[in-house]
């Protein structure tokens, strides 16, 4: 069965295939929907809510919502942009994000989203939570100060690597990424070659001894906003 589903994003006609999510169809059409917890082919998590769009007037996460014939999707509106900015600002104040010395700076998706939305400073008060660092593994570092609980490492380790090294423990403000061992990461079978090591959008899961390799000015988001790679594929004009 190969039927085509037609729906609109911000008034633009978009075609997709049955079973696609709004995000998949939008990506193929060159329309960028901002996201954090959605990553390549990992199963959608629907937890960060950055990809929230209005579907027929109701908020839905674009990474989990399947497309249907004739649906109306609002993506780039003032209302949704404000919601997304609030979410990103909350992520900044809920952790300890010291961009000035972070190895991930310039390649960080959280930072890149803040740049894209022109956030100079979060409007919320900083919480300065106490978070721990696990540097036990010879090749891998976990810095939970920077963790935004997107679950990308959890899913990559479980679904792609087949190792299930990471899992969430705790609830609410106490929620954190734990490792599948009595003590620390070194006691797991984590390897620096695992796909999970490349799944982290921020600097919470880092490979040791490779930081700062790319000079300032040549990093991923130094000149091009996040999502511009998707938008460059766009053929239809609004």
């Amino acid at each position: 069965m190969s039927t085509t589903i037609t729906f609109t994003i911000d008034g633009v006609d978009v075609q997709g295939e049955p079973g696609q999510t709004i995000m998949q169809a939008a990506d193929a059409a060159g329309i960028y929907i901002p996201r954090l917890c959605a990553f390549e082919d990992l199963s959608p998590h629907g937890s960060c809510r950055v990809c929230t769009v209005m579907v027929n007037g109701r908020p839905q996460s674009a990474c989990t919502q399947p497309i249907s014939e004739g649906m109306t999707v609002e993506n780039n509106t003032d209302e949704i942009t404000e919601i997304r900015k609030d979410i990103i600002e909350m992520l900044f104040v809920e952790g300890n994000h010291y961009c000035m010395f972070c190895e991930k700076s310039g390649n960080c998706e959280l930072q890149a989203l803040a740049y894209r939305f022109g956030i100079a400073v979060p409007k919320f008060p900083y919480l300065w939570p106490e978070r721990d660092v696990d540097a036990s593994h010879p090749d891998i570092l976990i810095d939970r100060n920077r963790c935004i609980l997107c679950g990308r490492c959890v899913r990559a380790s479980r679904d792609v690597d087949g190792k299930t090294i990471f899992e969430f423990v705790g609830r609410g403000p106490n929620k954190r990424v734990a490792v599948n061992a009595e003590a620390n990461l070194k006691d797991t079978d984590a390897a620096v070659t695992d796909t999970a090591m490349d799944a982290c959008p921020v600097g919470a899961l880092l490979k040791k001894r490779v930081g700062y390799a790319t000079p300032v000015g040549e990093r991923r988001y130094d000149h091009n906003p996040i999502g511009s790679d998707i938008e460059s594929k766009r053929t239809t004009t609004a």
Binding site: Y126, W128, P129
Partner: peptide, 18 residues
């Protein structure tokens, strides 16, 4: 005007906040 990360978010000195 807040100029720089220390003025806008505390910066390196704020590492003592935890």
């Amino acid at each position: 005007i807040s100029m720089g990360d220390c003025a806008t978010m505390g910066g390196i000195p704020a590492m003592r906040n935890t």
